[in-house]
């Protein structure tokens, strides 16, 4: 199921502001790619263009191609809804639907798409919760609201919700930044397992996290104040952290940056 993503020469604009310039990255299937870089360098912006979530922001616009197994997600007759169904996303803040129970949260994607078969929904819920390492913690209170869980549990609930629709790719936008270290560890664990089945792209401001979870790392940086962000270097994580090709990358990694 996992698919590869090829980002080809992508430019992103917010109205007239040129936010990101000329990004080209390939994300192989069943692989974790981390986007790192200083605040405001456009790494989250690039992530959002991978499932067209940037279109929620008025005035945002993309030039270039994003290919999912060779197919352009910005093609003329491609529906953004279909793209998002295929490429799931987990956000910075855990955001379970407050009106829904834990179980309904997990199967929200299927239910909203019209699946009514209760038995099947129960199956999917269990499978997704097991997949998110949350099943044993919540199996006795599936009908309680999701907002009653701890922050770390809520985030895993959101991951379960994302994988319940069986996407091909999972995007994670700083999924641990609102969590404590122990919950963070649980999520990182989970990412390691999920990559057996999914292509994962994760944005993180935590370099140790990128080093721990990813196979390949892309470093983004700003050319200067008011300048668009760009991709500086993308390479195997090991190489980026031990022997980067660019000086800017090395400065950032070693903390000699800004």
């Amino acid at each position: 199921m996992a698919k590869r993503i090829d980002i080809k020469d992508v430019d992103i604009y917010y109205g007239k502001f040129h936010a990101v310039e000329g990004v080209t990255v390939s994300v192989p299937p069943k692989n974790v790619t981390a986007f790192i870089g200083p605040s405001g360098c456009g790494k989250s912006t690039v992530l959002r263009t991978l499932n067209r979530m940037h279109e929620v922001i008025p005035g945002a616009r993309v030039e270039g191609q994003v290919l999912l197994d060779g197919e352009d997600i910005y093609g003329t007759n491609v529906d953004p809804v279909q793209v998002r169904r295929t490429i799931g996303m987990v956000f910075q803040q855990p955001n379970p639907f407050p009106t829904m129970s834990i179980r309904d949260n997990v199967v929200a994607g299927l239910k909203l798409a019209g699946t009514r078969d209760k038995k099947k929904l129960d199956e999917v819920a269990e499978r997704a919760l097991r997949g998110a390492n949350l099943w044993t913690e919540v199996k006795d209170r599936l009908n309680k609201p999701g907002s009653g869980l701890s922050g770390g549990q809520q985030q895993r609930l959101c991951i379960a919700r994302a994988i319940a629709v069986q996407p091909d790719v999972l995007l994670m936008d700083e999924p641990c930044s609102a969590l404590d270290p122990i919950s963070t560890l649980a999520i990182e664990d989970l990412i390691g397992q999920l990559k057996q089945d999914y292509t994962i792209v994760i944005v993180t401001h935590n370099m140790q996290q990128a080093a721990r979870v990813s196979d390949q790392t892309a470093f983004f940086n700003l050319a200067g104040v008011g300048q668009p962000g760009r991709l500086i270097e993308c390479n195997d994580t090991e190489k980026i952290f031990s022997n980067p090709e660019e000086k800017a990358t090395e400065d950032y990694i070693s903390g000699r940056f800004g």
Partner: peptide, 21 residues
């Protein structure tokens, strides 16, 4: 933040490898 997370996060798993085993 929460004890349930402590029990859950498999302390044995080596951190850098992200518990891929």
């Amino acid at each position: 933040m929460n004890n349930r997370d402590v029990t859950k996060s498999r302390p044995g798993a080596p951190v850098p490898s992200g518990g891929q085993g």
